[in-house]
Write a protein that binds this DNA or RNA. Structure first.
Length: 360
DNA sequence: AAAACGGGGTG
DNA sequence: CACCCAGTTTT
């Protein structure tokens, strides 16, 4: 299974890929710089989202935080406010932590070895390789989702790329194929190929510089690769959330201080997600607000349910409109009354924007 | 409604 | 190495 291409063939493959990239590669903002800060930021954003979505966030982020020092100096909440809607918020926290580490402990410069780079929060083997190759011109391989797909097809790999054996094989082949000349352009070129030509569903094999050497294409079924691991179905969970509104329209929101769970973002009060698929009685919601926050509301009014899919489960939220009558949240809860439509400083996850939108 | 995509962290 | 991470987009 470890078979691959000999050295001469690898050089030829890299050459034809680079030629395609030079001719037809997309012109993207992070390809117009060698600033490690800008390349790092792009790689982190691209871990989780397509190019189209990242473009808008990337421009806004750099406008607000043009240097790693400005990012390091910012409050986490300001970073999350720019990041909100992109999802996977832990990566924004890692981004902030790495900015502080590089700025405060490393003299503002990214480390230039794979080991040191990989110790920074949010940077693993593939992202480390990408930054080292693209920003510093080092001979380093990458193995992101695009590269996994391209190489799995090139080799007609029968092992799932996400299985330990598949990863080992693909990392080895990725290293063999990475040229000593222009390793950074090669990294961009193979990601570009995977995103545009060797796409997940309908690869455009006639446009591919590797068509003549691709085992999956020769078999006539490039779509059968990469072989997927079976996935566990996502469980469904349910919870209520109380939209406690003041006469002036402001809503009670609470900060999430749990470092691992949407840390730093805000949400309406509610119960823990659980297994019961029916909305609670209004009096349950009312009692929850009284007991947890000492807040008295008029009879909660059920609103249309909101469904949202997360990484590992589907969630249905039963929102309740609760008109505030008396009481203030205890200091320790950190609760704030927020005009969520106008507020620019209170970061919310997409789910909670959807729930608040039920207020009309 | 279901499937596919996605890379790093943690113990 | 197995499991986890408060999503999005396509079909």
């Amino acid at each position: 299974m470890e078979r691959g291409f000999d050295e001469a063939k690898c050089r030829q493959l890299a050459g034809s890929l680079l030629a395609r990239y030079d001719r037809e590669g997309r012109d993207l903002p992070w390809r117009r710089t060698r600033d490690p800060y800008r390349i790092w930021l792009a790689e982190i954003m691209l871990q989780q989202t397509g190019v189209k979505t990242v473009l808008a966030y990337y421009a806004r982020f750099l406008e607000r935080f043009p240097t790693i020092q400005s990012l390091a100096a910012a409050e986490l909440e300001a970073v999350l406010s720019i990041w909100q809607g992109l999802g996977y918020y832990r990566r924004a926290r890692h981004l902030h932590a790495t900015a502080r580490q590089v700025s405060d402990e490393l003299g503002g410069r990214f480390p230039e070895t794979c080991e040191a780079m990989g110790r920074l929060p949010g940077i693993g083997p593939s992202t480390a390789g990408a930054i080292l190759a693209i920003a510093f011109g080092q001979h380093q391989a990458i193995l992101d989702g695009n590269v996994k797909r391209v190489l799995a097809r090139l080799l007609a790999l029968e092992t799932p790329p996400d299985a330990p054996a598949g990863k080992r094989i693909l990392w080895e082949q990725a290293r063999r194929l990475t040229p000593r000349e222009r390793p950074g352009d090669y990294a961009q070129a193979i990601m570009d190929l995977g995103a545009t030509v060797c796409s997940p569903r309908r690869p455009a094999c006639p446009s591919c510089p590797w068509q003549g050497d691709c085992a999956a294409c020769r078999l006539g079924r490039p779509d059968l690769y990469p072989v997927r691991l079976a996935r566990m179905p996502k469980p469904r969970k349910y919870q209520f959330q109380a939209l406690v509104t003041r006469p002036d329209g402001r809503v009670l929101l609470l900060p999430n201080r749990d470092a691992t769970l949407l840390g730093g973002l805000w949400h309406p009060p509610g119960d823990e997600p659980g297994g019961s698929p029916t909305p609670p009685e209004a009096q349950i919601v009312r009692r929850h607000l009284a007991e947890a926050f000492g807040i008295d509301v008029a009879t909660p009014l059920p609103l249309e349910a909101v469904t949202h899919t997360f990484t590992h489960f589907h969630l249905t939220v039963f929102p309740f409109l609760c008109s505030w009558q008396a009481g203030e949240p205890p200091e320790a809860s950190g609760g704030r009354w927020i005009d969520w439509r106008l507020d620019r400083h209170t970061p919310l996850a997409t789910l909670h924007r959807k729930v608040l939108a039920r207020l009309g």
